[in-house]
């Protein structure tokens, strides 16, 4: 097991290297430069060249790349051109914000999807099952930003139940409990929007995994032993049904982090995906490299985690 983990961790290195080379080439192939937005009649082309030179724009690309790798290996991702600040420092608060939002979305979708999926499966072909199935499909079929705008229009604006945008009431002077409530209120709508698709797909997986388990021989055996239906379902079937579900759950992590861009944009949520998007728009090369690297590492670690969970939960699987 330990060997397996080490091997998987080592595998991250070539993949990261590959990602960084591809991303680096792609972002430098984009037309434009970090100061393209500076359309200022009081500025001369010489001014701009001087500024570009100061950020190393004219150095040969391989040199720039090697410089980046050399820094990244030591945990230094360079200086953001736009923020004039260390890339890691710029990212850190956004990583926290993204973490809060994706964790909240994940908890929401797990709490909602797994019970619904189980009920759906145990009452296959019932009215409840039909409604839940159709509801799940509806959740999978609404464009994210459209759902977000509808929530803002109807829930936040017309009904005034929740704030429209942001992470907190600015300069509210709230402390303690009030501050927590304020932040929680700002979290509700983004959580719903971000969690929608995962809830729907998680529910579908739980249902089908559960259905499959119920058909297995050992469940039949358990029933034959005369155990009550409740014990059979919740003690025997559920445990085994949840193994693939947990895998699916950890595979949702990347989607919740990099896929949060639309949600973050609509609700002005200061997260990592929006930071990355803006870095692309501003050609802030060190910033793009930094955000993409962080997101890739998270994806790979969550994939590894998924596989490990699988091994831990399912005694039949042994990794070498």
């Amino acid at each position: 097991m330990r060997k397996y983990i080490i091997r998987r961790l080592l595998l991250i290195i070539p993949v990261l290297l590959g990602i960084s080379i591809i991303i680096f080439s792609l972002i430098h192939a984009m037309p434009g430069d970090p100061f393209a937005h500076l359309i200022d009649p009081n500025m001369t082309p010489e001014d701009k060249d001087r500024m570009l030179e100061a950020v190393g724009y004219f150095d040969p690309l391989p040199v720039q790349y090697l410089r980046w790798v050399a820094g990244a290996v030591q945990g230094e991702f360079g200086h953001s051109i736009r923020f004039k600040e260390d890339v890691l420092k710029v990212m850190w608060p956004r990583i926290q914000n993204t973490f809060v939002l994706s964790l909240s979305a994940m908890i929401f979708s797990t709490l909602l999807a797994i019970p619904l999926g189980i009920i759906s499966a145990t009452k296959q072909y019932s009215v409840f099952d039909y409604i839940a199935t159709v509801a799940a499909f509806i959740g999978l079929s609404i464009p994210v930003f459209f759902f977000g705008l509808m929530l803002i229009k109807f829930v936040a604006f017309d009904l005034g139940l929740f704030p429209i945008a942001g992470m907190q009431t600015v300069a509210s002077g709230y402390t303690g409990w009030q501050l927590l409530v304020d932040k929680a209120r700002h979290l509700v709508l983004p959580t719903l929007v971000l969690g929608l698709a995962s809830t729907a797909s998680l529910m579908r997986y739980t249902r089908s995994s559960m259905l499959e388990c119920v058909k297995q021989d050992y469940i039949r055996t358990a029933r034959a032993k005369g155990l009550s239906e409740r014990v059979v379902i919740y003690k025997h079937a559920l445990r085994n049904a949840l193994i693939p579900v947990i895998t699916i759950l950890s595979m949702q992590i990347p989607r919740l982090i990099s896929g949060a861009l639309l949600t973050e944009t609509i609700f002005v949520w200061p997260g990592l995906a929006r930071l990355s998007f803006q870095a692309v728009m501003n050609r802030d090369y060190p910033m793009i490299m930094g955000t993409v690297t962080v997101m890739s590492i998270v994806v790979m670690l969550s994939n590894l985690f998924a596989d490990l969970m699988y091994a831990v939960l399912d005694p039949r699987i042994r990794y070498q």
Partner: peptide, 21 residues
């Protein structure tokens, strides 16, 4: 007492102005 520059979404900011945000 203070001046706050607050990041907003251009599509929803009118609603924020009306809602007092």
């Amino acid at each position: 007492d203070g001046f706050i520059l607050q990041v907003a979404n251009q599509d929803t900011s009118q609603a924020q102005l009306i809602a007092g945000e």
